[in-house]
């Protein structure tokens, strides 16, 4: 017996094959290509290009940027989601739209904005320069651009869940004597922990991989302001294919580990 919502067997097969085919062609194949290219001449060149000082500097910078941007977005995203899901206030809808802004704006523009604001010819650039603070073409600019681009991940993961859970548990906690902080710590946070972790991991994956916005504000100073994605591009443009794919492979690996962690968490949750 076939259920009314079920399609004919051949059609199901065709749809499944199409889905798998598309996934292999556009998702799996490129990933395989990255690793295949990197290891074309065996382990030796890969190890050599990864131990290059510039490559190591790029890895360090990428991890440092992620280590700053992700916690900032964790706090900011939770605060935004909490405000939107649990309270009614004027400007609530506007805030929701603003949260999605980084998704809809091209990353290049996000980077340019920071150059315009903090750059040498920018609004705040001269003022900051007098005080010896460099934002653009330095770590602060890269961090700011990364924070901007990856802001939506945590908030967007949490908002639907928190809205769905409603406010009554928090209200119950309040009538039982809990203040805001305890309420958040003992009631809200445990209810969102899995979604929060998953949002943080996505945010992390993107923070490490961000190219466009970072490219604009970084200045591409080798060994100093080059993150891994920028380093990959430079190597590629210099026809150092094995080195480029080696670094790209490492970056891909970091992303894969993140995704695997996320998948495992979702199963546990």
């Amino acid at each position: 017996m076939r259920r009314p919502t079920e399609e004919a067997p051949w059609l199901r097969w065709v749809l499944c094959l199409a889905a798998v085919g598309v996934a292999v062609l556009f998702l799996v194949l490129p990933l395989v290509a990255v690793f295949a290219e990197a290891f074309r001449r065996g382990w030796g060149p890969v190890a050599k290009s990864l131990s290059d000082p510039d490559a190591l500097a790029a890895v360090r910078l990428t991890l440092l940027v992620a280590a700053i941007a992700v916690p900032v977005n964790l706090v900011g995203g939770v605060a935004a989601a909490w405000a939107i899901a649990k309270f009614d206030f004027p400007g609530r809808r506007l805030l929701m739209v603003l949260i999605e802004l980084p998704f809809s704006v091209s990353p290049v523009i996000s980077g340019l904005v920071y150059v315009l604001v903090f750059g040498a010819q920018g609004w705040l650039g001269p003022w900051l320069e007098e005080r010896g603070v460099q934002v653009v073409f330095a770590l602060p600019g890269i961090v700011l651009a990364t924070i901007f681009v990856t802001f939506p991940f945590v908030a967007r993961t949490l908002i639907p869940l928190m809205q769905d859970q409603g406010r009554t548990e928090e209200e119950a906690a309040a009538t039982l004597g809990a203040g805001g902080w305890r309420m958040f710590l003992h009631v809200t946070l445990p209810n969102i922990r899995w979604a929060l972790l998953s949002g943080v991991l996505l945010c992390n994956a993107r923070a490490m991989g961000e190219f466009g916005a970072v490219s604009v504000v970084s200045g591409h100073v080798r060994g100093e302001t080059n993150t891994m994605p920028l380093h990959v591009e430079i190597l590629y443009n210099e026809y150092q294919f094995v080195a480029a794919f080696a670094v790209a492979g490492l970056l891909a690996l970091l992303a894969l580990v993140t995704l695997a962690a996320k998948a495992m968490l979702e199963r546990a949750g």
Binding site: T168, E169, E171, A172, A173, A174, T175, L176, G177, A178, G179, H186, V187, P190, N191
Partner: peptide, 21 residues
């Protein structure tokens, strides 16, 4: 006086039990 200081026992319609406890 905020809700947390009123010492009013409230039983919610859907009970609002803490689901993770």
């Amino acid at each position: 006086v905020p809700a947390r200081e009123r010492r009013v026992g409230f039983v919610f319609q859907n009970y609002a039990l803490f689901r993770h406890m």
